[in-house]
Design a protein around this nucleic acid. Structure first.
Lengths: 271, 271
DNA sequence: CGGTAACTTGACGAACATCAATGTGAGTGG
DNA sequence: CCACTCACATTGATGTTCGTCAAGTTACCG
């Protein structure tokens, strides 16, 4: 999918690793890691600081349109990805052929861990909008890391993996133990938090995914999600127009997520 | 909890790293990593091969009794643990004070990742039986790994973390999408597989955890677990006497887990 | 033994899925 | 500019799974 080394254009900037950016299919431009707004959270930055453009371990930038896949299930693992802009969806197809949305990714976040164990990606990674990612090449042949990788970098990766584990644990809890309304409230708060972390307004944002994706991710029927949106809206907690969402009463939303606030069970009841 | 360096007893064996074993409180004995049956799957083995007993990075062996904790929520992260024998339970307490059983660990498996992100353990790790673990000291001050750790070792850890992520994803799927009977069937198959991997009989083993723990882990009521055990038993799939379980018809168990086999919905129905 | 924790069994209802029908808006093409 | 389409979203009616409550039963440990 990503042209790895062949199309690399060497630029005057040879002190810092260069990034190949592909605009609409074949247009590419190189960017310096130093200019990257995500450098502070990027494991490639510390590791690649001494790399030259064209080195096999140099990060590769890629632009995508909505609906495009970064990788598919079964693709050979060849590195991790840092979201530079846009929003991404991670899903996989279970042995019954049913799609399962496992996660969403926001700018500044790292994905691709699903490919380390076993050497092949288990998930499908799809762009939900126009966006860009930076691929951090990483080879794990046997037990030896790619030559460009030092212990410091791997610690950063280990920390990212650990964060991913923590989030998954949280998610297991949400799926297993929480009612539909608490799940949805938790979901909104999580999105809001990550939006803020990515530099967006935590109280007014555009839901980048469909109701279907939300339902799938929370393991709720689409209809339930729809009803919850309405319920929250009529309770003055949020305000939604299509996919644009505004959190009106964050306190109340948190209360719902933590059960302090008993939501009227409008769902599944004959009115 | 674990005395780290003070009680180390240096032995004649100084070529390989030595392990401190503490029997009933204060009795300790040193063991060589070379004699360890889990060396092939242990990240400490490759990393520690050149260490001497007493070195700060040397693995530390510890024996535990049922009910003892390896670490508690909030404990400072100081390393990962490899299960040498026995069975362990990982749980945490959510912000509502409710206990959530997240995982079980079998001989040869590694736990402790919950402490890497943030530097403090989020989980409580309890021994379900008499057993022993080997602590693999690992410090992550800032972004720098403990001096004894090389890139190779960290790759092993990264792979273990990735496996943990894969397992968690699987679990999210189980919790969110599967019916009670499919969950329980999946649970039994998972236990069986891991039992086999640990060198036990995959078809006849002792459930090391209580019904309560199973229910909690699968996010099912204890009563439901009890009913499912009965149901599976009357369908000739398993045979259970207290905690001793035998898989009679593995094919059928797999079919239940994958929905091919429609379990009679004996539950919640007036007979 | 007797007391407690673990487990089983039954009855009932609530929460949510499912089914079905309708609404809505972004494209597309004339 | 208007019809047409198609995916996405809403809304209502009905049914099933599983949690909850309650009352046993059994093992276990002093």
């Amino acid at each position: 999918m990503i042209a790895n080394t062949p199309n690399i254009i060497t630029t005057p900037n040879i002190i810092t690793p260069n990034i190949i950016e592909m605009n609409r299919e074949n247009r590419v431009r190189t960017v310096s890691c130093h200019d990257c707004t995500k450098a502070s959270v990027c494991p490639a930055y510390s590791a690649g600081a001494g790399l030259k453009a064209g080195d096999s371990g140099a990060p590769v930038h890629r632009n995508v349109r909505a609906g495009q896949n970064i990788y598919d299930a079964g693709d050979t693992f060849s590195g991790l990805y840092m979201v530079k802009s846009g929003f991404f969806k991670s899903s996989f197809i279970d042995y019954n052929g049913i799609l399962q949305v496992t996660d969403f990714f926001f700018p500044g976040e790292i994905f691709g861990f699903d490919g380390i164990d076993g050497g092949h990606h288990k998930a499908i990674l799809e762009a939900l909008d126009i966006g860009s990612v930076c691929k951090i090449p990483l080879t794990l042949d046997g037990r030896r890391a790619g030559v460009l990788w030092n212990a410091d970098t791997l610690v950063v990766l280990l920390q990212a993996a650990s964060e991913s584990i923590s989030r998954d644990r949280e998610m297991m809890y949400v799926l297993g133990k929480l009612s539909a309304s608490r799940r949805f409230a938790s979901f909104l708060l999580d999105i809001s938090r990550r939006m803020a972390k990515s530099g967006f307004d935590p109280d007014a944002f555009r839901l980048c995914m469909s109701r279907n994706d939300i339902g799938n991710n929370l393991c709720l029927a689409v209809e339930t999600v729809s009803r919850l949106i309405n319920q929250f809206q009529s309770q003055g907690i949020i305000r939604v127009v299509r996919r644009d969402l505004r959190i009106i009463d964050r306190r109340k939303l948190e209360a719902v997520a933590e059960r302090e606030f008993e939501t009227e069970h409008l769902i599944g009841k004959a009115s």
